[in-house]
Design a protein around this nucleic acid. Structure first.
Lengths: 165, 165
DNA sequence: GAGCACATGTAAAAGGTTACATGATTCA
DNA sequence: TGAATCATGTAACCTTTTACATGTGCTC
């Protein structure tokens, strides 16, 4: 997820590490996660780097995605399964970059997300089932509403990407 | 998160490892995560165990939460910050177990979740901002709707838990 | 003068992933 | 006969967390 999200950001525009940390704040992007990751991506040829000299501030290492990086990113997007389909971020990312995927891949992604949401409906998390808490029941209802709305959305999308058998 | 969710399940009823794996399927609960975790919790005195002998099937190790375990779980719930507040599961868990928290703690939790959601509104994830994708715009709108509904919910709850200054 | 923002980096410890192992039962 | 479910476990590897280090400029 972290690697994929770094590349997703670099797909939009070149970034330096510190900048990526602010974008990826939801993924707990500490120093020993982001900086070694960027060096690793560079070693594999997925990103290239240049140094931006600044006065009165530390220099920046600006990373840009390469053609090999774009191909690799596309491959990461195609790699979608039931476990990843549970995660809204993983699904949203693929919708965001649907222009990199063909109809067959997108069809599979939509189907897996549909399965994940239906699974959540049929086998709800036990922790949302604790006690007879009225506050929790209301919160649960909010999430149920979103899930049903998302299932509706998926059905509409599946019409568009209906190339798969 | 994993430790907390294991204890949350044990708060409801005793479980064996394989059973917890099915409940916690969204947290990628592999063997080398769940079994060492349960032994660790046992060593710390947070859970106790008994063996259930079965015929024709492998024996089960049934884990129950202890009083020390309940106190520890309560402490884990109290430990809530901006980073955790980004995660819906972390928030929902605390609503589910709000009966273990006093009004002051719950007030802080609601405020932090509010801050997190408002931050998401003000500083949207760059990956949801990619391109002029119509499909993505619709999905984004779904999530915006849920966020505003959840913010409304939090305002209502804050009225109830308004003991904090 | 303390603390934060900027920007990158590493050491040590903890934790997680992948893959394999056991062994009975059930299903296609 | 091969695969899946039940149930627990470990070895080897990889990743992540926590904490520290550097040094300037800005704000309280």
């Amino acid at each position: 997820m972290f690697e994929t999200m770094v590349l997703a950001n670099l797909m939009c525009h070149p970034c330096h590490g510190y900048e990526l940390k602010t974008y990826l704040y939801r993924l707990n992007p500490n120093n020993n996660k982001i900086y070694p990751m960027l060096r690793q991506l560079n070693q594999k040829g997925y990103v290239e780097t240049r140094t931006q000299i600044q006065e009165g501030r530390p220099n920046r290492k600006i990373y840009s995605i390469t053609e090999e990086g774009k191909t690799h990113f596309q491959q990461l997007l195609r790699d979608f399964d039931f476990a990843k389909a549970q995660n809204a971020d993983e699904f949203n990312l693929r919708v965001a970059f649907s222009f990199l995927l063909d109809d067959k891949d997108m069809g599979k992604i939509l189907e897996l997300r549909k399965n994940a949401l239906e699974h959540q409906r049929n086998v709800p998390d036990p922790m949302y089932m604790v006690g007879e808490n009225e506050d929790l029941a209301q919160l649960r209802q909010l999430h149920t509403q979103l899930r049903e709305m998302e299932l509706g959305y998926i059905e509409r999308m599946r019409g568009k990407y209906s190339a798969h058998t």
